[in-house]
Design a protein around this nucleic acid. Sequence first.
DNA 1: TTGAAAGCGCTACCAT
DNA 2: ATGGTAGCGCTTTCAA
Lengths: 329, 329
Amino acid sequence: MMSVTIKDIANIAGVSYSTVSKALNDSPLVKHETKKKIVRIAKEMGYTPNYAAQKLVLKQTKVIGLIWPTVERAVLSTLVTKISQEIHKTPYSMILSVDPVQQSIETFRRFQVDGMIIFEENIDETIDNLRIPILSYGVAKDRILHYPVIDANHEEAMYQAISHLHQLGHQRIAYIGDLSRNDALQKAKINGFIKAMHAYGLPVHHDWVIDTHGLDWYDGYTATNKLLTKTLQPTAIVGGSYDISGGIIRAVKERNLQIPDDISIISYDNVPQMNNMEVPLTCIGVPIDELATEIVNAMIKIIENNQEEIFVKKMTPVLVKRNSTIAIK
Amino acid sequence: MMSVTIKDIANIAGVSYSTVSKALNDSPLVKHETKKKIVRIAKEMGYTPNYAAQKLVLKQTKVIGLIWPTVERAVLSTLVTKISQEIHKTPYSMILSVDPVQQSIETFRRFQVDGMIIFEENIDETIDNLRIPILSYGVAKDRILHYPVIDANHEEAMYQAISHLHQLGHQRIAYIGDLSRNDALQKAKINGFIKAMHAYGLPVHHDWVIDTHGLDWYDGYTATNKLLTKTLQPTAIVGGSYDISGGIIRAVKERNLQIPDDISIISYDNVPQMNNMEVPLTCIGVPIDELATEIVNAMIKIIENNQEEIFVKKMTPVLVKRNSTIAIK
DNA sequence: TTGAAAGCGCTACCAT
DNA sequence: ATGGTAGCGCTTTCAA
């Protein structure tokens, strides 16, 4: 099972192994003939470079590690895939870890990845003296940051959503999303909703803010059923996420309500698959492609400029109008 | 930006770096106190061993790469998470790649992982002279295999499902699943269904085999609606996957049919979350934990025994009875 | 144009 | 119990 090394090749070729190394790396310092001969022999012998050895001397892996501690949610999957694709447009490639953050970091350090992207807000301070650049995607906290963060402007998103509905004449607007968990993202969304409603002088009716207690489509479905039993009904619903909105549509249609004629629906999450839903939804959020591009660019910039600077980049959400929202008659 | 090495630690600790190496590897050759001190300093300095260097001398990294070219499907996510957990019970750890197989292999090769698990059937022959053990999870082809495969006995699964329903007196049984794609797994399931029906002398009614044209819950939903408009109705439905069955339940309930009194439902995929569905479903499939354990054990065995042997291991499906299936009145 | 040798970070052996 | 050192396979100066 012993592999062929450049020394073996050197022996056969009758040259020194440093020449072999140069030849195999296509260095201009080696005579063309020699190079050709060496390459031929290498091939004949079935040589494959030992990457561990290479890495040891080259110090660079050109790999970015992505830490994704909870494998779930359609939208995040899409983002991961997009990021991977985006990274492949550069000289870098990507590996993923689904282990808890600390463990993942540990693994990635051993592999000497050039940088890490972390999909989580709850990173302890214990990663300071880490010597590898980190970029986090999540909700920027108020407290002191330990690493740069790419965030979406969730308040702005909700503001745009409400603005859109308000323009269409809606006054009675409901919000269906997950309020149960200690998740900064979910909190940012509902807070943004409330603020925006206030900004437009609209009432945040207690009955119209429904907790899904989860992020699956079915959670959205049951929450909507709850909403639709209230005496006073809203004219529009804001769905907290792609999956949840899938359930909202179903529950609404089950009651024979027409979208958008009887009720308008707008969903958080700006992903292409919004277009393929039972009812294509008007949505609001940072376009997933933009997000991926920004994350990758930022990461690479940090790696290559070796910049220590800690920044927060708030991405601007975009509203995509489809036929699930309409003006009040 | 230089990482901490054992030499740095040795300097601070005032010992030789070979002592540091021993201490860090918990060798009995180092005095307890010294060891403690060194470990403490290493921690303070944020030391992590360098895989490349270790690999160079030890010839192994104790890392397994998992290739998962399509990040999607609830059930696969669960499996990935389980596998990761399972691996962490061993001295190994796991990294993931979501890139196309060839690309992923290249990346893992650079990282010198000890073995790769591949979630896909369509592996070209071009990976032969790879010197890294491969284990594939998918449907075993008839043609010559290039690497060992862990597979589920899909025919047996469908056989058990039909047997269960048959025992309960069902004769009119429908199948709702994805028949559209060139996916060996989906094909194995429908073929198993047909075979099993024949084995019990039951009719495979053309109207009762519905193509979902997709794997989302909503695809199951629309397919079921199609089924429920037929003149002659089945007394039981076999759902092709967890997600699809979610949609089946919804469509059935929307017509005010009771599960299981009006119609029995059994689903493929044996995952715990079957218990938390709108209606907890009787299901059939290889229990996900067993699958994970088997995959991990097989991989490690291949790595450690350096065995070249190519095998196919068909896992045995298990039926879990819940209240979604009942005897015909 | 080629070769010699240092050194990447680590383990393991031998010497002290 | 600790230190010194060879060597894993490779790249990269520097010397020839």
